[in-house]
Write a protein that binds this DNA or RNA. Structure first.
Lengths: 126, 126
DNA sequence: GGACTCTTCTACGATACGTAGAAAATCAAT
DNA sequence: ATTGATTTTCTACGTATCGTAGAAGAGTCC
């Protein structure tokens, strides 16, 4: 599955925040309004639409984005929710470990109390 | 932190399996004996020692590997255990999510029964 | 059908990684 | 200390990915 680049990530974030499918142009506008990723960075995103389209195509190829080709300004939407995607990534990382339980132990030791409570609830009914 | 390449990964795996610090030459030998990553791949690792050294330097720069420069054939060892490393990666992935609990919910839904039991135990005393 | 809009193709620079030779540094033995 | 062997560093090249976008092609609308 691999990891996303910075712009790819920014695009996915916007798509995740927008349940409705949107056009590349809308996306480009949203990217312009984005605050710089790093505070202080003069990161005024003034991207060409083709740039956004290229990124969207790549994300489509990676299976993260889907588009409606039937209507003319194509509409793009994320295939999965951010939560799903993140969970999948975590599982992918965990999957490659021969010592899963040891990993989980360390992992659990780090989540906040509130999250631990949530986890207990989720695990409750087995 | 970023993700590791294939060879970098193979090297880390070996270092994780070898608690004692080892030399680049030993590592190269161990790599030769490795079965191909992909079954069928004629992946007989016959690497030059310089290749291994380059990779080790890169891993050192990334903070994953440590070396003893005092003795002459330098000895290399991993800085953290594989479990720690994997847990850190998982946390890194999770950390970038604004909806951590939703992610955890999906994540939990996927671990095996045995692991769920382990998790319950780990979370037991709050 | 011409003007405009949108998408695809092609491309270039930067970075990461696999790979290793050439050169420099160190060590061992005389 | 000189030489020969061992080890490490420097430099480099090929490939892949990503940010970036112009040029060219396809579709849309009077």
């Amino acid at each position: 599955m691999a990891t996303l680049g910075e712009l790819e990530r920014a695009v996915m974030d916007l798509l995740w925040e927008h349940p409705e499918a949107i056009t590349a142009n809308t996306l480009r506008d949203l990217l312009s309004q984005r605050p710089p990723a790093v505070a202080g960075g003069t990161d005024s995103r003034e991207l060409a639409v083709t740039t956004v389209l290229t990124v969207l195509s790549r994300l489509e190829k990676k299976g993260l984005v889907e588009r409606e080709r039937s209507i003319r300004p194509h509409r793009y939407r994320s295939v999965t929710s951010r939560a799903e995607h993140t969970a999948e990534l975590m599982l992918e990382v965990l999957g490659s470990a021969p010592d899963r339980e040891a990993v989980l132990a360390r992992f659990i030791g780090t989540v906040s109390d509130g999250e631990a409570t949530t986890l207990r609830k989720l695990l409750g009914q087995g």
